[in-house]
Design a protein around this nucleic acid. Structure first.
Lengths: 243, 243
DNA sequence: CCAGATCACTGGTCCAACCAGTAGACCAGA
DNA sequence: TCTGGTCTACTGGTTGGACCAGTGATCTGG
């Protein structure tokens, strides 16, 4: 009993629900890009909620670049493929349209591309203080008794990459990494399974840290690629088996 | 007179204004991550607006992962460096904290990393129909009389990359590209200036298209890197001169 | 045929009230 | 002493209804 993990009770507000339904309709293609959304008053009636709740939902859609609102005119649906930001990735899982396996592959491919360059840049730009805290990272983990389980290792591994990306001095990488990590966390089981090889390879992680702290750009990039490539291949295999 | 380009009149709504002020305070570090925002009623009074306007602004902040709202509890400020998505990049310019030059460098570095891989993937995965429309791209441009000006070339160049990224079959790249392009468009002059070398190099663009349509992954990646690297170097030089 | 007023729509803002969840203070009973 | 309940003063969530402010189609007079 004490081992059972309870999930937080999902408590969606009315405007959350409205947001999700509209988002799914847009991302799922039920409403075409360029089409006009019904008026707020009409939507409010259809959803059976107050107009204010609809407005809050539409504000979120606007922020996510899924719709374009114009005072006096209609609210038009945008083409999310050419307008939405990377954050939408995490929300894509709910509404189909893109197969889960392909979404995972996209994420890990991008993780590879960014990770390799971030590792190289980190090796080039890391400050001595940041290098110090990075150096202490794997040490702690590898000396732990009893040996940490996979979930714990996964968390530590994420933290490692967060440090590397932060050390790269590239704010775009950092923000993109946030979106990617979050997208992967939407499918925790699959993500953990696919990433097991790299998560448990503490030796490679150690090598990576050494390369970065010793400002060896080429080595950092090489080890990073070696590490991240595995998940890309695993995801590619996953896509193939499902086709 | 007919040459003068007028900018659209900025027409910020009340909740837009509230959003911007709160966002700038958070991104600018005026309010610390983990701190609580004042209550909606208090904020409404401080801003001199209705509570609904504040709520709509907070919804957008929540969507952008800048705050975390909990019913009954306080609205807490998140650390945008570890929570916000790539879309924030475009909004970062307004509030300082990150130097413009470094932001540009971040963007073009990421553009390079993603572009090279997207080109390679496009060469691997492009469909014959997509290859056809891609092939017709530069042709049109290089035969134009009179020669198109820089702005036009820039638009065509963006379109080219959009096609390539779409052809890569990687939805994450596509969404990330949206955010990057938008971020660059916030500083149109600087972006156009820095990207002039690659925009005007129609020969390289042609090579890239040929490589992709003929499924030559290595060549596609090579030409893409050659093309995109220039802007990274220009941006790096810009950062240096400003330090 | 066309400029210009009209008007029915759209979203934007406000007020005021009440519902719902939280968290700390407080007060039993074990 | 500690546990659990209850009370209470907050927090955000939701509602209704009114009115302001742009937009765009339509109608109208020249």
């Amino acid at each position: 009993m004490s081992q059972v993990v309870f999930a937080p009770v999902a408590r969606a507000s009315v405007s959350d629900d409205v947001y999700r339904q509209l988002r799914d309709a847009i991302v799922g293609g039920t409403v075409e890009p360029g089409a006009s959304l019904a008026g707020e008053r009409v939507l409010a009636e259809q959803f059976g909620v107050n107009r204010h709740a609809v407005r809050e939902a539409i504000r979120r859609l606007e922020q996510a670049r899924l719709v374009e609102v114009s005072h006096g005119g209609a609210t038009r649906v945008l083409d999310w493929r050419t307008h939405a930001g990377l954050e939408l990735l995490g929300e894509l899982g709910a509404s189909v349209e893109v197969a889960p396996a392909e979404m995972i592959r996209s994420v890990v491919e991008m993780r590879l591309a960014i990770g390799v360059d971030a590792a190289r840049l980190a090796a080039r730009r890391i400050s001595t203080s940041a290098a110090g805290s990075l150096a202490g990272h794997v040490e702690v983990l590898s000396r732990r008794e009893p040996a940490p389980d996979l979930a714990e290792l996964g968390i530590a591994y994420d933290a490692l990459w967060r440090m590397i990306v932060a050390a790269s001095g590239n704010i775009a990488y950092q923000l993109a990494d946030n979106s990617l990590v979050e997208a992967l966390q939407r499918v925790p089981d699959l993500a953990l399974q696919l990433s097991e090889p790299e998560i448990t390879d503490l030796a490679a992680q150690h090598e990576l840290i050494v390369a970065i702290t010793s400002h060896d750009e080429a080595m950092a990039a090489e080890v990073a690629e070696l590490l991240l490539k595995r998940m890309v291949e695993a995801a590619a295999a996953l896509v193939d088996t499902r086709n």
